[in-house]
Write a protein that binds this DNA or RNA. Structure first.
Lengths: 220, 220
DNA sequence: TCGTGTGAAGACGTTCACAGCT
DNA sequence: AGCTGTGAACGTCTTCACACGA
């Protein structure tokens, strides 16, 4: 059996996808699913899926497949999805404000409980029901509420500085949308989503297609 | 020397990062740079960087480093950044509207020339200077303007359908923000950015850190 | 001596293929 | 028969380490 301690980021990412698919199956009252069916829905190879599920222990039934509910529950447990994770957001500009209105985080078990901006009075609050505070109040808030996760959506020029403040305040994981490489201590996890570079990547592979060509650059 | 034809998505992504770093060096009138310096700025291993640059031919000077301008130009050429790439955006909701206001695309050489929504009259145009049309007009627009790239920001439920329409209209590359696996022909390149799953990934590695632990799940 | 360019080694990730359970 | 679980093969990406040019 596969060892518990070492699950790669890629596997985690895929487990999240499987979990989402399984929830759809639950909604449709489907009770069992085979690796090939679920793999197709998730867009991966069936063997890949079975390997990934190996990290959860032995859950399938040979000749039959997996119990949807049981599997969903097992993934939820590994991902630590039992309870809502509190998150703060820093930088309520275009993108930050959109993320505050975005309901996708809550669907996956995250709740943005507070937002911070350098100039909170300029923020357009239309459709936002998360309180927006001055960024000066961030450290206290993080300490008091023991927040571990932050979404960073400030301009590139301020990203490193704000990131430092977040780390000092006790934040342990940052999802950054700033087009910069952040320097953080090893104890802090950073994931950077760089919108322009993602588009660039698509563009490159499109350009190459003089004739109809196969390609599929994906999330790693 | 490394063959030209086969550059991986990961390398492309990093080349884009290098390019951005080089532009900053240009602005600061720095003329030469070593692999180790540039690598540090880009957050990668120096050997990695040199390998990546190998795809461009032999550009460095042993004992010295790289000419900033020359290297920047060479990357720009490989990435096809000579001229602005036209892009359309479909789905002007929260996220779509934010992306229309986002200036990061233009900085990297992309121009969103038109947006489309199922209900364009409900779109808040504040701060948006891109025309928003009814999605019915999309196919004509794509055909007339020979657009190859689209950003997809519609709700998950409509993503596949809209994606089909885009492909039928002649779009060859899609950057999708919908939390769904899109089925497209092999000739079309898709890159999916799933915001909630990116956060999930950070969260997982944070949770594991009982003691101060090393981790850094990155963009693949 | 400094720093590139690159073969070779190593780490990591994916897919195959089949034994074994139901 | 059908489908899981998994070693082994394969492929890809990263890092090392060193020859070689400036």
């Amino acid at each position: 059996m596969v060892k518990k301690g070492e699950i790669s980021g890629k596997t985690i990412y895929r487990l999240s996808i499987y979990h989402r698919c399984l929830r759809r199956l639950e909604e449709n009252k489907i009770e069992t699913v085979s690796s090939s069916t679920l793999a197709k829905a998730a867009g991966v190879n069936p063997a890949q899926l079975r390997k990934d599920l190996g990290y959860l222990g032995t859950l399938g039934t040979r000749g039959l497949g997996y119990q949807v509910l049981e599997l969903s529950e097992a993934i939820r447990e590994v991902l630590g999805r039992e309870n809502l994770q509190p998150v703060i957001l820093v930088g309520v500009g275009n993108l930050g404000a959109a993320l505050l209105r975005y309901d996708g985080f809550k669907k996956e078990g995250f709740e943005v409980i507070s937002a911070f901006d350098a100039v909170p009075e300029t923020v357009v609050l239309r459709g936002i029901d998360v309180p927006v505070h001055d960024v000066d109040e961030m450290p206290d808030f993080v300490a008091k509420n023991k927040v571990k996760l932050a979404v960073l959506a400030v301009p590139a020029a301020q990203a490193q500085e704000v990131s430092n403040d977040l780390v000092d305040a006790g934040i342990q994981g940052i999802l950054s949308f700033s087009p910069t490489v952040l320097q953080v201590p090893d104890s802090v996890t950073v994931n950077s989503v760089d919108l322009a570079l993602e588009l660039e990547q698509v563009s490159f592979f499109v350009k190459k297609d003089s004739q109809g060509n196969t390609s599929e650059p994906v999330q790693g």
